[in-house]
Design a protein around this nucleic acid. Structure first.
Length: 192
DNA sequence: GAAGGTCAAGCGCA
DNA sequence: CTGCGCTTGACCTT
């Protein structure tokens, strides 16, 4: 724990610093039982989609399942409104969308990337709730030679990335040969 | 509407 | 062992 906010109920770690809050990690924002229950409901009830992409002469599956919802019309059966409230309580912002990602096992991943800036509102945060199995995320400055920082994203944790950090840093979930269970992320964003 | 950026798997390297 | 950089090319933006 590098830093704690004395005025907030939950402690967080500052992974990257900038004027907009940088990248902050709260390891325990949602209790384990709640996190597990939400994981199961989303796993079983979300509208998961399998995207495909061309790769040389083949077409391959994107190595994760995805779902997307606008917060104005959330399906009642999914616990997304409650999750939004939990996020909102710690990091207030006019969130209007959630993206869900399901990493089924260690072969699922996302390449290092930054969130597309033209689909985001400047100065508004990106809030990522993790559920299910822990998974390592790497975060690395785009310029300079600094090595990636790894964070083990725990179930019930919250990672908040500033808009500014998407310009300076990229992040990804590498594949792993270790046996890992399914992990889910729910990413709350403010879209124009 | 155009086109510069994205991002998949696998290989070779340090 | 594992992170990383490089490769090609269809599809972009919810």
């Amino acid at each position: 724990m590098n830093a704690c906010d004395l005025f907030s109920s939950a402690p967080y770690r500052v992974v990257v610093d900038d004027e907009e809050g940088g990248i902050r990690y709260w390891p325990d924002v949602i209790g384990p039982a709640q996190a597990q229950a939400w994981f199961e409901r989303l796993r079983d009830g979300a509208h998961w989609q399998q995207q495909r992409r061309p790769m040389y002469e083949r077409v391959v599956d994107v190595p994760r399942l995805q779902a997307w919802y606008g917060l104005e019309e959330l399906p009642q059966a999914l616990p997304l409104a409650a999750m939004q409230a939990a996020v909102q309580a710690l990091v207030p912002a006019p969130y209007n969308t959630v993206g869900l990602n399901l990493y089924r096992d260690g072969r699922d991943s996302v390449a290092m990337h930054h969130d597309k800036l033209h689909t985001l509102v400047p100065r508004q945060p990106i809030a990522l709730v993790s559920l299910g199995a822990p998974r390592r995320m790497n975060i690395r400055p785009k310029h300079g030679q600094a090595r990636a920082v790894g964070i083990d994203l725990m179930p019930g944790s919250l990672l908040v990335m500033s808009h500014a950090s998407q310009i300076t840093h990229e992040h990804g979930i590498p594949k792993t040969t270790r046996a890992v269970g399914p992990r889910m992320s729910a990413v709350f964003r403010v879209r124009p």
